[in-house]
Design a protein around this nucleic acid. Structure first.
Lengths: 195, 195
DNA sequence: CTCCAATCGCAACCATTGTAGCGTTAGTGT
DNA sequence: ACACTAACGCTACAATGGTTGCGATTGGAG
């Protein structure tokens, strides 16, 4: 999708229009309501063109996901690992709570459990996220707050996992307290040396 | 679905045939390949009947899920909370690894992120699972291995969450070691008194 | 400026999914 | 045993999703 032979001009305009329409449709109707025809209609691009370049709704999602993965997100720096970890988990929680971002983010997860391409794209997305977020753990190790044998990415995974588990597996509500507790649990495990 | 006015005879046969066909189709083709027409074909029940009684693929899934939720699963009893927790998480992991059960279980998760009815059914399923699994934590508290203020269900959630997170969110492989580590992390957090 | 290939728009089409009307079958109460 | 009606099967059809072939447009290289 990146090595286009004709990156300038009309192709670029079409691509942007479709991407924008995809995100707008996702925000409004979620993943279930995302259809190639609606995106084509909204973007002003013919449906045949969308099918040719993106193939299906999963292709649209994957493309939008790559785009979303490029922009970094604000890693907290509160001075303590406890505050940083809590900040990250709260950021995840509030992201899904947001009426604008929530449906889009949820749509990514929903698409990935169904389509291999979307799954790959989401995998890459989360690998980048883990890598960025792990910085707070590295800082903590440097400050001597955590043993230096800790698996920095695993701390992040264990910290955010309960939030995702509640949202997408058990389908339970997630309170701010739940988020803090998940962060604290990961921290306790890291301090105990099991991560 | 339970308060049928004619629970005996043909209706029951139809219901069982459809349920069985649904599970078989799920095992073979996963959630993506599950279609009302295929289930109708396989079960020998006409497709209009399936549409009438189950409405859609999500209805089929919800029904199969209620069925699956009724049969209990083997909670380990190794004598120590460490062994029990590890056993539970490994059970989860190996369940999704199993070529027979894996696709069916995954299909439940996939359906629930898309359909509200399936989400409700899966929610009930997991509430029951948590309740059953929490028994190992209660035993540990009784043995004095854990503080008695611990949230027994939360320990289970935190223990299994990383496995589900890897499988359905980050789309990373899950090794046996990953599973043990997740159990150990939850245990460390519980011992530290944050759960 | 001119030409050429890549890309897009368009209409027509096929396949699949889901619905409606209606006659038939088979549990269930008497 | 008999009648009554819920539930099912069947055909036909509407709607949606996705494909194909071809002509028109447009960037970009020389």
């Amino acid at each position: 999708m990146e090595s286009n032979k004709r990156p300038g001009g009309r192709s670029a305009r079409v691509r942007d229009a479709v991407r924008e329409a995809t995100l707008a449709e996702l925000a409004e109707h979620g993943y279930r309501g995302l259809t190639v025809e609606n995106v084509a209609e909204r973007s002003g691009v013919h449906k045949t063109t969308v099918y040719r370049r993106w193939g299906s709704v999963a292709g649209l999602i994957s493309d939008a996901l790559e785009l979303a993965g490029e922009e970094p997100w604000p890693i907290p720096d509160t001075g303590s690992i406890e505050g940083d970890l809590r900040g990250i988990v709260q950021l995840v929680r509030s992201g899904f709570d947001d009426p604008e971002l929530g449906p889009v983010s949820s749509a990514f997860v929903a698409a990935a459990v169904q389509d291999p391409d979307a799954a790959r794209a989401l995998h890459e997305f989360f690998m980048a996220r883990h890598e960025q977020s792990a910085e707070v753990v590295r800082r903590a190790v440097a400050r001597g707050e955590l043993p230096d044998v800790v698996d920095v990415r695993e701390v992040i995974r264990v910290a955010v996992a309960p939030v995702y588990y509640r949202l997408f597996v058990a389908h339970e509500p997630v309170t701010e307290r739940d988020a803090d507790r998940a962060a604290d649990a990961a921290l306790a495990a890291a301090r105990a040396g099991v991560l």
